[in-house]
Design a protein around this nucleic acid. Structure first.
Ligand SMILES: [Zn+2]
Ligand SMILES: [Zn+2]
Ligand SMILES: [Zn+2]
Ligand SMILES: [Zn+2]
Lengths: 137, 137
DNA sequence: CTTGCACCTCTAGTGACTAGAGCAATTATA
DNA sequence: TATAATTGCTCTAGTCACTAGAGGTGCAAG
């Protein structure tokens, strides 16, 4: 049995975040002490660690909610699970592609700036005129 | 002279977004028609296009606010401008690094899954146990 | 003159928390 | 046992950059 603080230390999830997860129904309401404080069973630590790790890997809370539901049915096919993960992978790849293009553009801007006055600054110039860019973003 | 709709079409910034930018002081309040509708000078198009392009390149509205202020003083050194852009570049690079690590981890998870039942799903397993990962995130 | 689109203000919602106020319960120390 | 320190509680509001919707008004074409 754990207080919210201990659960927090155990999982690395901050106390207000745990309460937030309860509020949005990602964690079910735990028992309370006589004084009204939350008391968690040890197993909640597993669930919370799962949530934390999935968040670190970039899954949305909605995806996590679904993953948790799926993981409660061990005999089902894991196709749906893998589908969510694949979608997440594609998302990540898209973001990397986009950010890589931005990086190139930013570097080009900075490299071309002669570092004199604002009136001749290449950064300002390019920001004001997308046709000076090499690709769309 | 432009109505808000024309300004929107000219710059590709949505009407509510233009009003939002006015609300937070990124665009100054334009004149109004007798009926109370906003009427913009052509020059606002430049400013708004600058904002849009900077947003597309990932700058925050706070950074953009500062860039706009700086760009109004053409004779100053552009060091401060370039500083903001450099910071932004570093941010982008950090995000790429992080996302690349996530991508690796996600791919590993998916590759290792034998695609049978949830109980043996590698995705669920790894999400529940970070020690199965190859790096920190 | 009427139709229909564009425009107006204001409020609330998004995601995933975070901060803070003001108070109650529990635990550690004296 | 008394007190102090820590931890817990609820509730509200703030973050960022918008977006959606309600309920109303202005304006231009036919
Ligand atoms: Zn410069
Ligand atoms: Zn561009
Ligand atoms: Zn699987
Ligand atoms: Zn991990």
């Amino acid at each position: 049995m754990l207080t919210i603080g201990k659960l927090s230390r155990l999982t690395g999830v901050k106390v207000p975040t745990i309460r937030y997860y309860e509020q949005i129904g990602l964690l079910s309401c735990p028992e309370r002490s006589e004084g009204g404080q939350r008391i968690y069973e040890m197993a909640v630590g597993q669930r919370l660690s799962f949530i934390r790790h999935a968040r670190e890997l970039g899954f949305s809370l909605d995806d996590i909610r679904e993953l948790l539901t799926l993981s409660d049915e061990p005999d089902q096919s894991c196709a749906a699970v893998d589908e969510i993960a694949k979608r997440q992978l594609v998302e990540i790849e898209k973001r990397i592609t986009r950010l890589t293009a931005l990086k190139t553009e930013m570097r080009r801007m900075l490299d071309q700036c002669a570092c004199q006055t604002v009136s001749t600054c290449r950064v300002i110039e390019v920001l004001g005129d997308h046709t000076l860019c090499t690709d769309d973003h």
